[in-house]
Design a protein around this nucleic acid. Structure first.
Lengths: 241, 241
DNA sequence: GTTTCCCGAAATCTCGAGAATTGTTATTGA
DNA sequence: TCAATAACAATTCTCGAGATTTCGGGAAAC
């Protein structure tokens, strides 16, 4: 089978069988979480010690990250963490709406009983995490991340288009980076659970118009949060400065 | 600036400054043109001689091709030319319609005088090539390829979304591979020029509905051609067998 | 006749060192 | 004091060789 985006696939707990992939995953995580802030120069000589691999191996991992547009390679001047900007995030968000609503449309048209069951299950898991979060248990933030992503993935899981899902994965990854970088300023806020609940019910009812409408606004709402980001973050400074 | 897709950008005559990029470009071309048929195993040891680079260098070039989904990397079992299938091409085509019509919509809404001028120019160049082609001059096929792509790129050039254009580039590349592989059976056919003419006029008139409609059908029509491909091509055999 | 196991060959993956390019600093001259 | 040039240092890019893993054929066992 033509397994597009095996590199960015996250649904299956894929076990990295090579050092390149292992380094790739660790690097990707560190970039998304802001350990390597936007614009930072990624020197191979320094990073190969930190990630405990050879120089050539790390280079390949960096090339893979260019795929996800998390790293940019400049001619003969090495690698750099992809810069960020409000315009870019706006682009990401609007394109995400375009793709994700189409995916949802197709998913609602094709989803069978098994899909419905999976949706109920993942919504339940997400609800539990959101409940704990609202009770002040901040340790579950990490877990909520995963369940949130899982819920959104399940929503469009019945979409038969591998390409749409592939592109959607890349964009989700990108927006996640922006969201992480803006988190410390805009903690959780919003009644996200209510939005998820409405989305879930509309999906189960196969109300395409309503579901896509809710999903659009759900995604677009994150735009405001990021637009209020402090400027120094956009310039690639570390979040703590 | 966040230069997404520097690897797949083709509009600017980007000069490869590193051996990796040079090998990447040559390999990509050979894969699209069918020199390396779908499913073929890409052995580093053999290819490094053919492309006159080191083993590590070629590995990096192959990793870059994974980005474009022209090559798939399997765990510890090396690289392979991405397989093809009718289902995959159908997916590619429909997703292309989704993205390219949206891009055209935005482009028509934003295109200024300079864009109009560029569109007139590229359409003129394309028309000339199509005229020569209809006169039986088969040497211009290569040139027609470029001008056809240029025309379609100019159409959506005023679309401000880098991400949509990025994804569109990838999909265009993919569909080009399918088209090349099916060429020997379905040479040129269709009155492509008439379609281009109608598309051009609708775009100049800023008739969004008409333009997107024509573009959709224009893209979808290639589906039929590929669906009539001989089966052995789909199985990854060389086109000459 | 079919399956299983084992071993050799081939290919992949990984690493460190050398050549080429870029960015910086110091020196010279006006 | 400032601009231009030249040498230096740092980093990137490239290459070939060694360790690990996978693939294929053949013999033995059931």
């Amino acid at each position: 089978m033509n397994d597009i985006a095996s590199a960015t696939e996250t649904s299956a707990p894929y076990e990295p069988k090579t050092l390149v992939e292992a380094a790739y995953k660790r690097l990707r995580r560190d970039i998304i979480e802001g350990v390597h802030p936007p614009g930072e120069k990624l020197r191979v000589e320094h990073l190969k010690d930190q990630y405990e691999v050879g120089a050539g191996t790390l280079r390949e991992a960096l090339q893979l990250l260019v795929t996800d547009a998390l790293v940019v390679a400049q001619g003969q001047r090495g690698f750099r963490v992809a810069p960020i900007s409000i315009a870019d995030f706006e682009d990401i968000t609007r394109t995400r709406v375009l793709l994700e609503t189409e995916a949802l449309r197709q998913s609602l048209a094709r989803g069978d009983d098994a899909w419905e069951a999976a949706l109920v299950a993942s919504f339940h898991r997400l609800s539990r995490a959101e409940q704990k979060l609202s009770e002040g248990d901040l340790d579950t933030t990490e877990e909520w991340e995963r369940r949130n992503r899982a819920f959104h993935e399940t929503l469009i899981a019945a979409c038969p288009s591998r390409w749409i899902r592939h592109f959607q994965n890349i964009l989700y990854q990108q927006s996640e980076r922006y969201r992480r970088l803006s988190l410390f300023r805009q903690p959780v806020a919003r009644d996200v659970h209510a939005e998820h609940q409405a989305l879930f019910e509309a999906a189960l009812a196969r109300d395409v118009t309503r579901a896509t409408s809710i999903l659009s606004e759900h995604i677009l709402r994150t735009l405001d949060a990021v637009k209020r980001m402090p400027i120094d973050v956009l310039n690639g400074k570390p979040a703590t400065h």
